[in-house]
Write a protein that binds this DNA or RNA. Sequence first.
DNA 1: GGAGCGACTTGACAGTGTCTAGATCTACGG
DNA 2: CCGTAGATCTAGACACTGTCAAGTCGCTCC
Lengths: 203, 203
Amino acid sequence: MQDKTYHHGNLAFELLQAAERELVLNGIEALSLRAVAKRAGVSHGAPAYHFKSARGLLTALGAIGYERLVGVQETRQRSAESDPKSQLIAIGLGYLDFAESNPELFRLMFSSEKPDRSDTHFDTAAKGAFGKLVEGVRKIMDRDPHTHPAAMTQVAASWAMVHGLADLMISGRLDGPLALNDISELTREVLLSDIMLRALAEC
Amino acid sequence: MQDKTYHHGNLAFELLQAAERELVLNGIEALSLRAVAKRAGVSHGAPAYHFKSARGLLTALGAIGYERLVGVQETRQRSAESDPKSQLIAIGLGYLDFAESNPELFRLMFSSEKPDRSDTHFDTAAKGAFGKLVEGVRKIMDRDPHTHPAAMTQVAASWAMVHGLADLMISGRLDGPLALNDISELTREVLLSDIMLRALAEC
DNA sequence: GGAGCGACTTGACAGTGTCTAGATCTACGG
DNA sequence: CCGTAGATCTAGACACTGTCAAGTCGCTCC
């Protein structure tokens, strides 16, 4: 953060910021490592020192995405009723919030093969987000999904529903059917909650 | 199809075949127009004549994908019971079949910004697949989704559920939770059908 | 049998990620 | 206080990419 020196100390962080900015502006498929370097004000070879390759940079960015996703979900949870069902819906709404606010990052995390999923940081961050969902289902079913197959099936169903909603929403495919742009914030949430509730079988 | 002449007549078709082959081998993000041309045995500039750009080629390929998707769904429908609910589940299972058999093409169609969605062919093909789902819901609810909002919400819920399942499946994220690789073909379909049925509210 | 035109080739161009060697700064031991 | 070692970044080269312009080939039709 200190003034421009040759080693300015936090280039790795600034590169990640620049990368996300480029991601938002140009989309994941047109993202250029050289443009990221230029935005950060360094030479085109600089990123390779901190992140081995473009893949490395995007892996780190994806991992941050998962951590941010959990944060958004927890924000939703805090402003929701404390009963298990409301909490699980909040987790889902947080998932949708994140997807809508960070569509390109969401794509990078879930629908791209650029990040290295075997990377430790990326993997644990992803598992953290998954754990949030598992925990929500555990509370609502009073059964640990890791030991009860029916509960794990419920995890899969919940995830698929909310993930499908998110993916279709950010690609604009639900704009027509659900007219999400033409309704109020409140009816929107009621509608989405209603849909997500369907994934919960006999809970 | 006639022997190698300078103009061999169906280069456009062969380029599409080569492109899909490359798509399967290298993935969408590493697909190279020049590699496609080489695979088809033509110069690197040839594709530009038939499809204006790389975007054009991928748009055409995506459109074909939607048509193939409908075909797979109809295959499922023919070998299913004729009642509306079984038919809608068959449409969903066909969606999953297609995704599993053509994961990269699926990604191209749904999660990529390379194809030009405003292209007429692409758009009508995509609408055709969507229409199949709408029709399935119309029969099960006995209401036209285009005029009944509740039915259209049902369309969205069904689509989100099956699309989420497909997307998570092809990225291997359900392998752990659902252990899809370790169960028989039959239990697999029962499981997936069960999950998809949850999306149907009070049908 | 030449003209015209559709189908393709060829070469050039700017841009990309990665690699290597070198320049520069920081820190630390003497 | 100096100089050297290591961390950090630069600069250039390389092979590869998509797109474009100009040129070449071969069929068809008058």
